Computed example of a mutant assay.
Amino acid sequence: MNSKLTFNKELLLALAGLVILIAIPFFSPGRVALDFVIRLAAFGLFATSLNILVGYGGMVSFGHAMFFGGGAYAFGLLMQKGGASIPVAILGAIVFCALLGLVVGAICVRLKEIYFSFLTLAFQMLIHSIIITWTSLTGGDQGLMGGIPRVWGSINLADTQTLYWFSCIVGVLCLFLMRYILQSPFGYTLRMVRDNADRAKFLGIDVWRVRLYAFVLASCFASVGGVIMALFVSGAYPEFSYWTMSGEAVFMIMMGGLHTFIGPVVGAGLLLVFNDIITRTTEYHGLALGVIVLLFALGFKRGITDFVVQIFQMIFKRGARS
């Protein structure tokens, strides 16, 4: 009964958030707010999917952008050269990244800590090299040029407002699905494996299989973020699968919070805001962003949502004692 009440509560929260997002264009019709939320949907899914591995699975991946970029390229190629409809292309991108995640994950999740991290980075650089060198298919360092068809029936995703609503619906749906999965028995098993893999093995849990499932799930949700970004820029570019993109996802989690589900989305929003401000005010973009990340890491010593949750917990404890 409690699990059903929790599900209903979180479903209502997701619907309430979606209603608020859908209403934003009626109060702020300018493109700035709409473009920001579209990018936030893409990067929020990207960062939250990575946190399935980092925060819930204890597996720090330095190569998660291979699935973000892989989803963007698979979607774009299916649309451009395969003539697929938008739903079929989205499904194709998810399946492609699921298979890629299955192959890469089957190798990587056997390893521990730093070996896992750097092997995922090696696979990412391999995917990035393929994108750069296979010019006839991917466009090389120029990316997929010529735009992606963004019309499906009467739905025109080339229109900013329509793409905004599409991104909000897909983003909230995927976040809700991730939350549901992480609150399921599988999610708690993943936490157990993170906290004590040896004890989990003793209890009969197949640790390798649990980690592999988490890796594939994270790959699928990251690919949806890549699809949204591909629709936003009407193309796909090698930077989507470069190691710096994975680094940005790690920054999002660090700034937003590892231990709260919404933390990576908050971190994605913060990083987008900082990026927009820094690029307008200084040419030393990397230096300024690095200083900000250090301030968060050394000042809060955790993500901002983790910090806020800890403050509220302290307040409630004091109130209960009094």
Rank of each mutant, 00 (worst) to 15 (best):
S3R: 13
L11Y: 10
G17N: 09
F27R: 04
G30A: 12
A33N: 07
F36G: 05
F36M: 10
R39G: 06
R39D: 08
A42G: 07
F43R: 02
G44I: 11
F46W: 09
A47W: 04
T48V: 09
I52V: 14
L53Y: 07
G55M: 03
G55R: 03
G63Q: 02
F68D: 06
Y73P: 03
Y73G: 03
A74F: 14
G82Y: 10
S85A: 13
I86E: 08
I86R: 08
A89F: 09
A89G: 07
A93E: 00
L99F: 10
G101H: 03
G105T: 00
K112I: 11
L126Q: 09
T133I: 12
W134L: 08
Q142I: 05
L144F: 10
G147Q: 07
I148L: 15
P149C: 06
G153Q: 05
A158C: 08
D159E: 15
T160R: 14
I169G: 04
V170T: 12
L175I: 11
Q183P: 00
P185M: 00
F186T: 04
Y188V: 05
T189P: 01
D198A: 14
R199H: 10
R199E: 09
A200D: 01
V207I: 02
R211K: 15
R211H: 01
Y213T: 13
V216I: 13
F221S: 08
S223N: 03
S223Q: 06
G225S: 04
A230P: 09
S234V: 04
P238W: 00
T244P: 03
M245H: 08
M245R: 12
G247M: 09
G247A: 09
V250E: 06
H259R: 13
H259F: 11
H259S: 14
G267F: 01
G269Y: 01
L270S: 04
V273R: 01
F274W: 10
I277M: 12
T281K: 10
T282Y: 01
Y284H: 14
H285D: 09
L287G: 04
L289G: 05
V291P: 06
V291T: 08
L294F: 13
L295N: 08
F296S: 05
A297M: 15
K301A: 05
K301D: 04
R302N: 11
G303N: 09
D306G: 10
Q310V: 08
Q313L: 15
Q313G: 15
I315Y: 12
F316D: 14
